[in-house]
C-alpha cells in the first residue's frame, strides 16, 4: 500500500485552510445564486412577453450564455474589460459578475419554461370561475409554476457551486488553489500529498453538492406524482 499523503491534512492548520478555501468558493456561488434568482425571475417573466424586440434581445442573451464556456466569460470580464475600460477589477468580483450573468440567463430560461408549461385552460377555467387576474396568478398559476421551477433551480445551484471551481484559473485563492499551495509547501516532507489533498477536495465538493441534488430529485419525484 503506497503512502496516500493524507497525513498532510492534519499537519498544522492545513485542514482549516482547505475549508477556508471552500468557503471562498461557496461565498462566490451563493452571492451569484442570490443575484441569479433575484434578477432571473423578473427577467423570465419579461421573457414570456410576446413583443418581438424583447424576444430577440433575450434570445441573443441566452444563446451567448449557452454557447460560451464559463471560462471564456471569466477571461473576457477579468482580462478583457479591465484592458478595454482601464478599471481595476478584483478577481472575486469578476467571478461574481460572470456567474451572475450566466446564472441569471439559466434562471430566466427555467422561469420562462415553467410559465409556458402551464396549460392555457388553467387560466381560462380560473377566469370562468370568476377569479380576478390577481387571484388567478397567485392561487392557480404561481403554485404550479413553483412546483416545476423549484427542483430545476435547486439543480442550477449545484451546477453553480461546481462551476465556481473555475475561478482558480483567474487567480482566486479557493479550495483547489489552497490545495495546490499545501501540496507545494509539503513537497519534500510528503511527496504523495497530491493524492490526499485532491482526493479530499473531490470529496468536499461531493459532500457539498450531493445532498442538494438529492433534494432536487426528491422534490421532482414527489411533485410529479400529483
Amino acid at each position: 500500500m503506497p503512502n496516500l499523503g493524507i497525513e498532510v491534512l492534519f499537519k498544522g492548520s492545513n485542514m482549516a485552510r482547505l475549508l477556508g478555501g471552500l468557503w471562498v468558493s461557496l461565498r462566490i456561488s451563493l452571492i451569484a445564486v442570490g443575484f441569479s434568482i433575484g434578477l432571473g425571475i423578473p427577467l423570465g417573466i419579461v421573457m414570456t412577453s410576446k413583443s418581438p424586440v424583447i424576444k430577440v434581445i433575450t434570445r441573443l442573451y441566452l444563446e451567448v450564455v449557452r454557447i460560451m464556456p464559463q471560462m471564456v466569460l471569466l477571461f473576457l470580464v477579468f482580462f478583457g474589460t479591465t484592458r478595454a475600460f482601464g478599471w481595476n477589477l478584483n478577481a472575486e468580483v469578476a467571478s461574481v459578475i460572470v456567474f451572475s450573468f450566466w446564472g441569471c440567463a439559466e434562471m430566466a430560461d427555467l422561469v420562462r419554461g415553467a410559465f409556458i408549461s402551464i396549460p392555457k385552460h388553467q387560466y381560462e377555467s380560473a377566469k370562468a370561475l370568476g377569479m380576478n387576474s390577481f387571484l388567478v396568478f397567485s392561487v392557480i398559476i404561481l403554485p404550479q409554476t413553483l412546483r416545476r421551477l423549484l427542483p430545476l433551480s435547486i439543480n442550477l445551484v449545484t451546477r453553480m457551486i461546481k462551476t465556481t471551481s473555475l475561478v482558480m484559473m483567474i487567480g482566486v485563492v479557493e479550495v483547489l488553489k489552497v490545495g495546490q499551495q499545501i501540496i507545494e509547501a509539503n513537497r519534500t516532507s510528503s511527496p504523495n500529498a497530491a493524492f490526499g489533498v485532491y482526493g479530499t477536495v473531490l470529496l468536499l465538493y461531493f459532500i457539498g453538492c450531493w445532498p442538494i441534488s438529492m433534494l432536487s430529485k426528491y422534490l421532482e419525484k414527489k411533485w410529479n406524482k400529483s
Binding site: 496516500l4 471551481s165 504523495n192 493524492f195
Partner: peptide, 20 residues
Amino acid sequence: RNTPLLVQLFFLYFALPRIG
C-alpha cells in the same frame, strides 16, 4: 455528477501518478 471536471482532472492527472 456532483463534482466539477476541473477537480476530477486534477485528481486524475496529479494524484493518480502518486499511487503509481
